[in-house]
C-alpha cells in the first residue's frame, strides 16, 4: 500500500468513526429546535428549517424540567462535595499515615469492588424505608458520600507526596489536620479536580438507585424525568430531543472544559497499584 493511500485510509476511518460517534448528538440538537411534528417526515430532516425554542419552553412550563434540572444540580453537587471530603481524608490516610492493619484494611476495601452495587439496593431501600428516607435528597446523597474507587485514586496520587515535607511540619508541632489542610490539600489539587469531575458526571448520569429511591416526581433528577416521559409515549420527538439535550449538555460541556483531568483520572483508576 502506498503511504499516501494508507494516510487517506487512516484519516478516512477516523473521520467516519467521529461521524458515527457525533451523529446522534448533533441530530438530537438539531431536532430539539424543530417545530413539533416536523421531524417525522421522509426523508428525515437533518436541519431545522425554522428553528424554534418552543420545545424547551414546553419542557420547563409543562413537564417540570426546571425542577428536575435543579434536583440534578443539587444532588450531584452535594455528592461531589461530600464525597470529595470523605475520599480525600481516607485516601491520604491510606497513603501517608501509619496505623496497624493499613494494608489489610485497604485490600479489604478493594475487595468490595467485586460486589455489584445493585446487590445492596434492595436492603438499602428497606433501610431507608424504616428510617423514613425514601423519596428524599438524603436517600440519594448518603450512599454516594464515599467510594472505594475515589479513595483508591487519592491514595495513588498521595503516595507520590514527599514524606520529608510532612515530617518537617510534624517536627514543627503542626497537628495532623493542619498538615492535611495547609500542606497536603494544595498539593493534591490535580487529583481533586479529577475526582470532582468524575464524581459529578457519575452522579449526574446515575439512574438505577435514584429510580428506586425517588418515588415522587418532586425529587426526580433529569434522567428520571426523561425516562418517565419516554415511557409515557405522549411527548413528540422534538420535545424528547430537547429534554435529552438538557440532560446531556451540562455534563458534555463540563467534560469538554475539564477533559485533561477527566482522562487522567480514567487512566489513574485503571492502573493497578
Amino acid at each position: 500500500m502506498s503511504p499516501r493511500l494508507a494516510k487517506a485510509l487512516v484519516n478516512g476511518l477516523l473521520l467516519g468513526g467521529a461521524a458515527v460517534a457525533l451523529f446522534p448528538l448533533l441530530w438530537m440538537l438539531a431536532v430539539s429546535f424543530m417545530p413539533a411534528g416536523t421531524s417525522n417526515a421522509l426523508p428525515p430532516p437533518l436541519w431545522p428549517a425554522h428553528p424554534v425554542l418552543d420545545n424547551y419552553r414546553q419542557l420547563f412550563e409543562h413537564a417540570g424540567m426546571g425542577r428536575y434540572l435543579l434536583n440534578s444540580l443539587l444532588i450531584s453537587g452535594a455528592i461531589t462535595l461530600l464525597s470529595l471530603a470523605c475520599n480525600l481524608l481516607a485516601g491520604y490516610a491510606f497513603a501517608k499515615l501509619r496505623f496497624a492493619g493499613r494494608e489489610r484494611l485497604f485490600r479489604a476495601l478493594l475487595a468490595l469492588l467485586v460486589v455489584p452495587a445493585q446487590v445492596a439496593m434492595l436492603p438499602l431501600f428497606l433501610l431507608f424505608k424504616y428510617a423514613g428516607l425514601v423519596d428524599s435528597y438524603a436517600g440519594v446523597v448518603l450512599p454516594g458520600m464515599a467510594s472505594v474507587l475515589g479513595i483508591f485514586l487519592v491514595r495513588q496520587y498521595a503516595r507520590g507526596l514527599p514524606d520529608e515535607l510532612l515530617e518537617a511540619a510534624r517536627i514543627d508541632g503542626a497537628s495532623e489536620l493542619h498538615i492535611f489542610l495547609r500542606i497536603v490539600l494544595p498539593l493534591l489539587r490535580p487529583v481533586v479536580a479529577t475526582l470532582a469531575i468524575l464524581t459529578f458526571l457519575t452522579a449526574w448520569n446515575d439512574f438505577m438507585w435514584p429510580l428506586i429511591e425517588l418515588t415522587g416526581q418532586g425529587h426526580y433528577t433529569l434522567p428520571l424525568g426523561l425516562a418517565s416521559l419516554a415511557r409515557e409515549h405522549t411527548e413528540g420527538t422534538e420535545q424528547m430531543m430537547a429534554g435529552s439535550v438538557l440532560t446531556v449538555l451540562p455534563v458534555l460541556v463540563l467534560f469538554l472544559s475539564m477533559q485533561r483531568y477527566y482522562l487522567e483520572g480514567l487512566l489513574l483508576g485503571s492502573v493497578k497499584g
Binding site: 441530530w27 449526574w204 448520569n205 426523561l226 429534554g243 435529552s244 440532560t247 446531556v248 467534560f255 477527566y262
Partner: peptide, 12 residues
C-alpha cells in the same frame, strides 16, 4: 459518547 447520559442517549 462515554460522558453522555445513558438514559438520554437511549431516548435518542
Amino acid at each position: 459518547p462515554v460522558v453522555t447520559t445513558a438514559v438520554a442517549m437511549a431516548v435518542v
